[in-house]
């Protein structure tokens, strides 16, 4: 059973001159943790706003829990928990006051629904009298999530909840999402951090309003069509330049401590090619190895093959 269905959704801004979402279709199963993965400007926020009934699509239709996002917007607003990308709590109200306000807004009480936010809220409870504006990034996210959850929504929309949050808080946040999922809440979450894609059950890769791919993270990784090699040396920048200039190399880009390299000839032994390229002797401590591609490698690949990659290469 699908909690969420999008059919050919298109949305433009400024009288059609800006294409924000381009013919996007996907569906999210009940209880699924689904990730929208893409950079800023990919159209993630617009998709969230259409689904949470804050915007009308130009074309296509979408339903949330069986309700149409245009016609049944009032019903949807009761059933959805939405955490917008911008921190959208009252900075001048305390943690407790914010939570109280959002609970009452939905006609619910904190006491009755406390079980659902308990794990999250307990972490910020020591600061319940502090103004929301004075919280750290990680705590703000937890409060915002608590406020989005307090009315016990069936489905949760989280627009870039981990942006601007440090690694530790991000890690904790994903642990929380796993727990919520285990309680049966359907979650649609977006992120610009490619490494977070692995924590979702299924993901949609989007860029410039278009879907680049849709599958489980594992399947997307497996779909990488060629061998990926890693190379490094003491002077990584000159190695990067040399490899890019080498005609056997199809692509070469930095990735962590290694350069990720693909070779034009699929039958060639890439390790050998990379060890013996023309300038290889000038590089100290040159190392090469086969690399397991990640989501980000796939994203880059898909971006390049997509029609829209014109201004990125």
């Amino acid at each position: 059973m699908n909690s969420l269905v999008l059919n050919n959704i298109t949305k433009t801004f400024d009288k059609g001159s800006v294409l924000a979402v381009d013919n996007v279709s996907f569906s999210v199963k009940e209880g699924e943790l689904f990730g929208l993965i893409g950079p800023d400007g990919a159209g993630k926020t617009t998709i969230f706003r259409i689904l949470s009934t804050l915007m009308l699509p130009d074309k296509g239709n979408a339903s949330v829990l069986g309700y149409d996002v245009v016609k049944d917007y009032k019903k949807i607003r009761n059933l959805v928990g939405y955490m917008p990308g911008r921190f959208s709590l009252y900075q001048d109200l305390s943690v407790k006051e914010n939570l109280q306000f959002f609970a009452t807004l939905f006609g619910k009480s904190i006491e009755k629904n406390y079980d659902i936010i308990k794990d999250i809220y307990e972490q910020i409870k020591p600061f319940s009298n502090r103004r929301a504006g004075k919280l750290s990034g990680g705590m703000k996210q937890k409060l915002a999530l608590s406020c989005a959850l307090i009315h016990k929504p069936k489905i949760l929309f989280l627009d870039e909840p981990t942006t601007g949050v440090d690694v530790v808080s991000r890690f904790e946040f994903w642990e929380i999402l796993k727990k919520l999922k285990s309680q049966g809440i359907t979650i649609l979450v977006s992120t610009a951090y490619m490494d977070e894609a692995m924590k979702c059950e299924r993901i949609a890769l989007i860029q410039k309003g278009k879907m680049l791919g849709l599958d489980t993270p594992q399947k997307i990784i497996e779909s990488y069509p060629m061998k990926l090699y890693g190379a490094k040396a003491d002077d990584i920048y000159s190695l990067l330049k040399d490899l890019r200039n080498y005609d056997q190399v199809e692509s070469c880009y930095p990735f962590g401590e290694w350069l990720h390299v693909t070779i034009k000839n699929p039958n060639a032994d890439g390790l050998e090619v990379l060890k013996t390229f023309p300038n290889s002797s000038t590089h100290q401590n040159l190392e090469v190895k086969i690399i397991e591609p990640g989501i980000e490698d796939n994203f880059i690949r898909l971006m390049n093959t997509s029609d829209n990659s014109r201004d990125n290469n």
Binding site: P84, F102, L105
Partner: peptide
Amino acid sequence: ELGTMEALLVSPF
């Protein structure tokens, strides 16, 4: 401006 309107609008209020 603060974005809280977004949160208000998605509520049944």
